[in-house]
Design a binder for these strands. Structure first.
Lengths: 355, 355
DNA sequence: ATGAAAGCGCTAACAA
DNA sequence: TTGTTAGCGCTTTCAT
């Protein structure tokens, strides 16, 4: 019935002052064990619950961490949050989660709301629309620590946790080369963004490392859906001459890769004999389809954990960023499966040679 | 640099009292437009951001809604949150999200923290471990509205939003029957929980509606993983005599169904000719695998939306639950794909009959 | 249309 | 070991 039990009520009941109750409840050393026990018992009896807002207001510091991200309902993001929560919860912080929905304006509103709620820190993965980052500078100006993850903006002087997309993308391409693919195309998301820019660079690195041809016609840099990818592949095989056609596709997403697989099947070509395919993200379906998809595990949970650890450190040190900036690189891992494996395993050539 | 700009500072600068600033900022009718404009301009100039904690404390009411759920990183749950957020954000509420991690104890802690943060309402999906619900009664006792979704406890007198699992499960079984399957087994999660109990009942309904045999040996009620399902299917075909073997499996999860598919393939049987399979959840992979999996779409986003709408109504009305209780049933939808389709479409029997 | 003053619930010097 | 007192930043009645 009554939601207004305060420390005053406990104080009255026990004939002591509110200060004593406050101290007892927060386990202050100068309070006798006896009093503490009594206070705690009475608190439960009266169904007392501390008012964190009052406490935060008085102490001038909050107890929650804000998270701003484009969309929560993806395998990647929900696992990032999972990782974040696994760090913040034991440290006693609440998570206030906001979706920017890929809108710059909503992202600004989110930030504004978090600042108004006096969060102790902000974790952010940028919306696709975000070019201007004044709202982020404003966070720092208010002395609120800020850490970026996944979709970051490098010009901002803060700590971050991201995948080391570049090296693993190179790994993927080198792997394709080793499997005998010579004309490797990339189907990528928007290459002006941090994430895809790196994957593209890794792709180019891989080609160079393998001494393979770099052909600008094989770089598709605005692929965003399965159907989009399907169409592109179809077009390639409709229009191009044989020699100018790619024989492998490095895709920056598993859905894109799936589109490629479907198109290639429909064209009557065989995977991986005719065409090799690699995806990105290790979506649950990738291990399940036939042929199973070679892809890249990003360890989103680890990204979340790293970002959360940084921000908690910053909060505790009262800093808004580490100097020099700390950038945690989580190395994704190439997971070789059937769509890229012309040789079953590393020893296959040896094993099969006697026959 | 300075994070402590308050209404006092604005007041000082403009030679008025804090009251005026407060009123101007909240658009109070009795403040002149001129003053309002001036105040707003100065607020921006000084980089003022309202302190919601102070405001909430003073007004005795918060501006956030707590969400407690077992695990955020599933397709189902992250989409529930997506739906919730789409309702709470426009209404001006923050979301504080907590994971119980399927632990009763953590669930209690989560609730405690939310109450301490003076959330305006709580949305909860119960942990698997939760048998005792005193912590929830306690929420109500404190006059905080509570709405359950997905994993609910019916003995608690509150509003809820859930799937109508029972009728759709019956639909699924009836569909199998129509496709000529006669010996339909169920592989289910723990049937003492709300969700799985309903799916089991729907399964039984479906069998009755189709005049099919109910065989207790075909009810597996503690299947929780793909591997678990694989083993069960293998065992069935190892041990049972032909006539006592199921010819179809209704699975309460897509992962379980996947295990069945794999085992059946390994046993050299054909799907759907020999064995029919239906999953649950419409996980992204279900449409992608071969053969594609017949499954059930749950519309998690809608569940989230419904739950959020209810709680916002309750908050606005100052009630903790609707009387009589409101229970929103979201009807899931059977999505027929290859693993259950002996006849390609509804008219197939007609079309093929002339031959 | 604006000001004065009290107080939301809690904490933390400073006193005793 | 406990009490006194002031105040975090804001809202709101009552007065002017």
């Amino acid at each position: 019935m009554n939601q207004k039990v305060t420390i005053k009520d406990i104080a009255k009941k026990l004939n002591v002052t509110p200060s004593t109750i406050s101290r007892a409840l927060s386990d202050h050393p100068s309070i006798s064990t006896k009093t503490k026990d009594l206070v705690r018992k009475t608190a439960i009896e009266l169904n007392y619950h501390p008012n964190r807002m009052a406490s935060s207001l008085r102490r001038g510091k909050g107890h929650s961490i804000g998270v701003v991200l484009p969309k929560i309902n993806s395998n990647f993001m929900s696992n990032c949050i999972f990782g974040i929560e696994s760090v913040t919860y034991p440290s006693g912080y609440d998570l206030i989660i906001c979706q920017s929905n890929e809108s710059f304006e909503k992202e600004m509103n989110n930030i504004e709301a978090l600042i108004a709620s006096r969060v102790s820190g902000v974790l952010i993965s940028l919306s696709r629309d975000t070019k201007n980052i004044d709202h982020l500078r404003n966070v720092l100006r208010r002395n609120v620590p800020l850490v970026m993850f996944d979709r970051i903006e490098e010009s901002l002087n803060v700590d971050s946790a991201v995948n080391d997309d570049r090296t693993t993308s190179a790994d993927a391409v080198v792997h394709l080369a080793k499997q005998g693919f010579k004309k490797i195309a990339i189907l990528s998301g928007p290459t002006h963004t941090y994430v895809y820019k790196n994957r593209l660079m890794g792709y180019l690195d891989g080609l160079r490392l393998s001494n393979l041809e770099i052909n600008e016609n094989w770089i598709y840099s605005n692929v965003f859906s399965k159907d989009n990818a399907k169409k592109i592949v179809k077009d390639i095989f409709k229009k191009s001459l044989n020699k100018s056609r790619p024989d492998a596709f490095f895709c920056t997403g598993d859905k894109i890769a799936l589109g490629v697989l479907q198109s290639v099947k429909e064209l009557g070509l065989s995977i991986p004999d005719d065409i090799g395919v690699i995806g990105y993200a290790n979506d649950p379906f990738s291990s399940i389809i036939t042929p199973s998809l070679t892809t890249i595990e990003q360890f989103p949970k680890e990204i979340g954990i790293s970002a959360a650890k940084i921000i908690i450190n910053l909060i505790e040190q009262g800093k808004t960023f580490t100097s020099p900036n700390k950038k945690i690189l989580i190395k994704p891992q190439l997971i070789v499966r059937e769509t890229s494996s012309r040789v079953t395993n590393l020893d296959a050539s040896l094993k099969s040679s006697p026959s």
